[in-house]
Each structure stands twice: as structure tokens, then as C-alpha cells.
């Protein structure tokens, strides 16, 4: 279901967490709120979920004003960074919690919980306590618990932030697949641009309480609205006073129009890529080449080259 946030502001004391934010999230999409820590993205998510009250502005969920609706009546699913597992309840009872509160018949609860445990692949852990699960399993349990009540929107606050790199990567692939299956409107908060680019249908870049840009991952990466977005989404270097991506630098061994002369000051091979550091007088840009490109150019330290940005 669609979410409309209009001119929402939030302060904590003198700190401005959100400054007049407008955002529309379309039905059934997987949207990432991306930005540095303290930028306001978690606050925005918590305001949508009702866990935080905005000082000004409105939140509409599915066309209805939800600004003053308490979280227990918003029918949203919320997944916390540190799982917020109910420690004294088994995995089964954790997932059943929302349904028990809604006083659904026992048989219906059992069927629904079994179905969800199968979806997150924790059937054989139904009788365990959360402390007997690994971090990744706990987060999948939290996801099943949030989905059990068939929420109109699913909100995830840095859901993979507490997991190690490997588990994190696999859970994010899995979230993408899960979303393709379940289709619930989903917003997740992350400060990891790779995670956002990989998983989301749409990116919302937030910094210092303001939305910097909204768009598809390709849009935001290729056509960043400003230097902040460009710098936050990937590596950048400076050539002729302009920010460019290091993989968009072309290296020539002879002079050509619109090029800048430079001297190779370093060559570093990292796996499949080669990093080239250059001295162009006023600037020291660096370029990212493939192994093949570097070999074709027969680069050496001290060599004179000409560089230009291809985009």
C-alpha cells in the first residue's frame, strides 16, 4: 500500500533529525532509505511505523491519515536491527504473537505460523528459544513475526546491520527474493550503498535530515543530483575541478583533444582491478582499470599519460 509523507519535521532537543521531508512510496515496491548515520533515515522509518511522533507534517498510509494513529493500530510490520526477539518465548510463539493478540482461532494461528516458518526456513527450530539461534536465524524469525499479521507495509531498520558480512550478503539476496514472492510494500533503512543498490527498486538518499535524491538505483548512481549523492554511492575522484567516478577515467598514451596530461605515480593490483594513481599537477586523481586494460596500455610508474572523463 502506498505511503505519503508530507512536510514531516522532527527535532530531538536542538538536533534537527528531519527537516520538512516529503516522500511518496508506491504500492508493492522495495524502497531503501540510504544515508550516513545520524542523517535521519531511521527517524523517518520510525515515524512511518508510529514509534516516533513527528513535530510537524503528516503521514498517510494507503490514503488514510495515520499521523496520530498509535503503532498498535497501524498494522505495519517492523523489523529491528537487534531483532527485538521475545526472549522468553519460543520461535513459534514469537511468530504467533501478533495473531494471538488479534485473538485468531488456534487452528488458524498454527497453520499460518507453520507456513511462515517454512517461508523463512525455521520449521525445525519452532520449539527453540531465540537465544539458541544464530543472528541470521533470529532476524529471519523477526521477519516471519512481522509478516504474520499480514501488514500493509513492512519496515526494516538496518535489518542486517548486526550480522557479519557473509550472512548479510546472503540475507539480502534472500530479502529480494522474499519480496518478489510476498509483494508487500517494503521500506528498509541502510547505510550500506552496495546493499541499497543491490536490493532496492527505489533509492531515497537522506542526509542531514533532508532527502537528497529519489530514483532507481541506476538513476541515482549514473545521474546523482549533487556531489554528496555521487560521493555517497560510490568511489569518486577529482579531475579538472569535477567529481568523476574512477572507473569513468580513460587513460591514453598519446595526446588527444580534451585530455589532461599526467604522470603515473602508482600502480596497485587488487584482485581483478588495477588502481592507478596519477599526478596531474594541480590534482592527484586516481583511476580504476581492469587487468586487461592495464596490460594493453603497458603502464609503468613515471610514465606520461593523458586522461579524460568518459562521462
Amino acid at each position: 500500500m502506498s505511503i505519503e509523507v508530507s512536510s514531516v519535521g522532527k527535532r530531538f532537543g536542538s538536533f534537527v533529525a528531519l527537516d520538512d521531508v516529503d516522500l511518496t512510496v508506491a504500492d508493492g515496491r522495495l524502497t531503501a532509505l540510504l544515508g550516513p548515520s545520524g542523517g535521519g533515515k531511521s527517524t523517518l522509518l520510525r515515524i512511518i511505523g508510529g514509534l516516533e511522533q513527528p513535530d510537524s507534517g503528516t503521514v498517510r498510509i494507503n490514503g488514510k491519515d495515520a499521523t496520530r494513529v498509535p503503532p498498535q493500530r497501524r498494522n505495519v510490520g517492523f523489523v529491528f536491527q537487534h531483532y527485538a526477539a521475545f526472549k522468553h518465548l519460543t520461535v513459534y510463539r514469537n511468530v504467533a504473537f501478533g495473531l494471538e493478540i488479534r485473538k485468531r482461532p488456534k487452528a488458524e494461528i498454527r497453520a499460518r505460523v507453520q507456513e511462515l516458518l517454512a517461508l523463512v526456513h525455521l520449521e525445525q527450530f519452532a520449539d527453540r528459544l531465540p537465544e539458541q539461534l544464530s543472528g541470521g536465524q533470529r532476524q529471519r524469525m523477526a521477519l516471519a513475526r512481522a509478516l504474520a499479521v499480514e501488514p500493509t507495509v513492512l519496515l526494516l531498520d538496518e535489518p542486517f546491520g548486526a550480522l557479519d558480512a557473509q550472512v548479510r550478503k546472503e540475507l539480502r539476496d534472500w530479502l529480494r527474493r522474499l519480496h518478489d514472492e510476498v509483494h508487500v510494500t517494503t521500506i528498509f533503512v541502510t547505510h550500506d550503498q552496495e546493499e541499497a543498490l543491490e536490493v532496492a527498486d527505489e533509492l531515497v538518499v537522506i542526509n542531514q535530515g533532508r532527502i537528497e535524491q529519489v530514483g532507481t538505483p541506476a538513476d541515482v548512481y549514473d545521474k546523482p543530483a549533487n556531489d554528496f549523492v555521487m560521493g555517497f554511492l560510490g568511489p569518486v575522484t577529482r579531475l579538472a575541478g569535477r567529481l568523476v567516478r574512477p572507473h569513468d577515467l580513460e587513460i591514453l598514451t598519446s595526446e588527444a583533444p580534451d585530455t589532461t596530461p599526467a604522470e603515473v605515480t602508482g600502480l596497485q593490483r587488487i584482485g581483478f582491478e588495477v588502481r592507478l594513481t596519477l599526478d596531474a599537477g594541480a590534482e592527484q586523481p586516481w583511476a580504476q582499470l581492469t587487468r586487461g586494460q592495464a596490460e594493453d596500455l603497458r603502464l609503468a610508474i613515471g610514465q606520461h599519460v593523458w586522461i579524460r572523463a568518459t562521462r
Binding site: A118, E123, S134, R140, Q166, V167
Partner: peptide
């Protein structure tokens, strides 16, 4: 967490394959 539990039941869920990996990595962690 016992590795034996990861002899996961055959499940038709499309995400099953990925999940097998996820689960075993969780154990490693």
C-alpha cells in the same frame, strides 16, 4: 545450534536453495 538440523526438510519454497546457504553460514558464524 547443531549442524544436523541443517539437513533441511525438502521444501518447495523458491528461496529454499538460498536459505540452505544462509543457514549453514549462520552456523559457521
Amino acid at each position: 545450534v547443531v549442524p544436523d538440523d541443517l539437513a533441511l526438510s525438502a521444501d518447495p519454497a523458491p528461496a529454499a536453495l538460498a536459505l540452505n546457504n544462509v543457514a549453514s553460514n549462520d552456523v559457521a558464524q
